[in-house]
């Protein structure tokens, strides 16, 4: 299952998504917050129209590690929760599915924020 070519696909697909991001940065002078939001919404959209899961089955981490995957789990979480819980799922589904990532990011930011301090750019 984990043949070497899986890693090749992951590398190329993940790299390609970042490549597109870099083109956007150069062409539109987008800041990183806008880039993150754009790719996240792309993920939400892909999941909403049902395209994300087949791509994910092929690209694996290549599309799950980019923030597209984060957006897709928000949308997929909402869709699944709606099927299971109805209206309540609209509210709980998205964040429930991504709670791990958000909590981790906040927790580690807090811990490392306490430990370290910002340093002037040296380069």
């Amino acid at each position: 299952m984990s043949d070497w070519y899986v890693y090749l696909i992951v590398f190329i697909s993940g790299g390609f998504i970042c490549f597109i991001g870099q083109i956007l940065i150069i062409k539109t002078k987008m800041t990183s917050a806008r880039i993150l939001v754009t790719f996240e919404l792309l993920g939400v959209f892909l999941a909403a129209i049902g395209l994300f899961d087949p791509i994910s089955a092929f690209c694996k981490a290549g599309i799950n590690v980019p923030i597209i995957g984060f957006g897709a789990s928000l949308a997929n979480g909402a869709i699944n929760a709606v099927k299971a819980k109805g209206l309540l799922g609209v509210f709980t589904g998205g964040l429930e599915a991504t709670a791990g990532g958000i909590a981790a990011a906040v927790f580690f930011a807090f811990i490392f924020g306490i430990i370290f301090r910002a340093k002037t750019k040296k380069f």
Partner: peptide, 20 residues
Amino acid sequence: HFSTAERQFRFPLELGNQRP
């Protein structure tokens, strides 16, 4: 001062972005 101007006008120092 680079570090005070950067945080006031631009981004946090440790943000991994490229300078235009």
